[in-house]
């Protein structure tokens, strides 16, 4: 068995000669950061799939959520949070979701049903400026504020996070 000890010792010494302790620490550090960042990548969000969705979410969800033409965006007026570091249901880091919001209905071409969509704004940072969409199906004038998408819904936030950043498009349920 001596030859095995010699082999192990030899290879360990060879590694020690070639590498520094600092490089080992750097490697471990990179691994930790990489693991932490993995859920932020689009591939991880795509992997959430139907299991991660709320009940009432459609099985058929055609189209590109980063496009204004995507069916859930039929009544959106603002920047898509998916282009701003968040997603169509979550706010980007550093912003809070407005508690009050404007609600509309959109037709899902995938299953032919109408869905109630809640366009919660994300608030607390200046306008995102990317992926601006303005589609106004069933939008009402400001004097009917409850169904108007021109209103800054961030002004209803308890935290007074008034600056508007971007908009989400969350499914509430089937409109029936």
């Amino acid at each position: 068995m001596k030859w095995l000890d010699a082999l192990a010792e030899g290879s360990a010494r060879a590694v020690a000669r070639r590498t520094s302790r600092r490089s080992l620490l750097a490697g471990i550090g990179a691994l930790l950061v990489g693991v932490a960042a993995l859920p932020l990548l689009p591939v991880a969000r795509g992997a959430e799939g139907p299991a991660g969705q709320k009940p009432g979410a459609p099985k058929a969800d055609p189209g590109d959520p980063s496009s204004c033409d995507y069916w859930r965006h039929c009544a959106i007026d603002g920047f898509l949070c998916g282009c701003c570091g968040g997603s169509q249901t979550t706010c980007p880091p550093g912003t809070d979701m407005s508690a009050v919001t404007w609600i509309g209905t959109c037709h899902n071409p995938g299953d032919g049903k109408d869905y109630v969509i809640s366009y919660n704004d994300c608030c607390g940072k200046s306008s995102c400026g990317r992926c601006f969409c303005n589609r106004n199906e069933r939008d009402t004038p400001l004097y009917r504020s409850g169904q108007s998408n021109d209103f800054n819904w961030c002004s209803g936030n308890a935290a007074a996070n008034i600056p508007y950043h971007c908009s989400t498009a969350r499914i509430v349920g089937v409109a029936e």
């Binding site: 609600i103 109630v116 169904q147």
Partner: peptide
């Protein structure tokens, strides 16, 4: 309720 009230 969702369409008329829930927003607020």
């Amino acid at each position: 309720f969702q369409l008329q009230c829930m927003g607020c």
